[in-house]
Simulated scan of single mutants.
Amino acid sequence: MTEEIIIAGFGGQGVLSMGKILAYSGVMQGQEVTWFPSYGPEMRGGTANVTVILSDNRISSPILHEFDTAIILNQQSLDKFEAEVKPGGTLLYDPNGIVHPPTRTDINIYKIEGTKIAADMGNVKTFNMVVLGAFLKAKPIVALESIRKGLEKSLPERHHKLIPMNLQAIEAGQQQMEEVHII
């Protein structure tokens, strides 16, 4: 199994953190992993994306030009990466700020109201974990126990008290993800 993923949105949405947690989770499962961030100098508010590859085999390069999955958190990223999802692949998006939703008919498309769900939970900072939960519902490539271990590895110890809240957000994302177009 090899899964090539792009996560893209604005800086400050937790794009890089989501990728890092996913990468650590793959390591916890004994997979080969790459985590390759890309962001503009403006950071918060600018565009950010990260590619993550999880594989049972050695990974030859972290640089990708097409993806099995795209997790999209803003219109600019949707415009840029929708066409780069492999036919038969998966696109997951948060509709907040998306003016023109995805239109492809040769990929699986899922929607998660991550912004709204995180706000309803009382902590908008869990937005990225809601989205991660939706992704894991669509593609359960890492176990929840590995995600918990990934959170422990990626969060400083002083923030470990936030792990239960993050796991609740992941569960909320799994429960509230919507199928838009399934091939």
Rank of each mutant, 00 (worst) to 15 (best):
T105W: 02
Q75R: 13
D120C: 04
V130S: 09
M121C: 07
H65A: 10
L136T: 02
G88S: 07
N57A: 11
V85G: 03
K116I: 15
P102K: 11
A118C: 04
I59S: 04
G89N: 06
I141P: 03
K139S: 10
V52A: 09
L91Q: 08
P62T: 00
I109M: 15
K139I: 01
G40K: 09
Q76C: 02
L92P: 05
T115V: 05
V52L: 10
T51Q: 09
I117R: 09
T69L: 12
P102F: 13
I112E: 15
Y39W: 02
T69K: 14
I59A: 03
L132F: 07
A138P: 00
P140Y: 14
L136N: 02
E42S: 14
T34W: 05
K80T: 04
N123M: 03
E66R: 12
P95F: 07
D56M: 01
I72M: 06
K137D: 12
S60I: 12
I107N: 00
P102A: 14
Y93P: 00
G88Y: 01
E32M: 02
E66C: 05
V85L: 06
I109W: 10
G88M: 09
V124C: 15
P37M: 14
L136S: 03
Q76H: 09
F81P: 02
I63H: 15
G45K: 12
V142R: 05
F36G: 05
P41T: 13
Q31C: 11
M121H: 05
W35A: 02
F135H: 08
T51W: 01
L92C: 04
T105D: 15
N74W: 04
N128H: 00
V131Q: 08
T69P: 02
F135D: 07
N49W: 03
T126G: 13
E113Q: 12
T126A: 08
S60N: 13
L54I: 01
L54N: 03
A70Y: 06
G133S: 06
I63Q: 13
L132H: 11
P95C: 08
I59L: 05
K125Y: 14
M121L: 14
G45D: 14
D68A: 00
A138S: 01
R44K: 15
H65V: 13
V50M: 06
M43Q: 09
E82C: 04
K111I: 02
K125E: 11
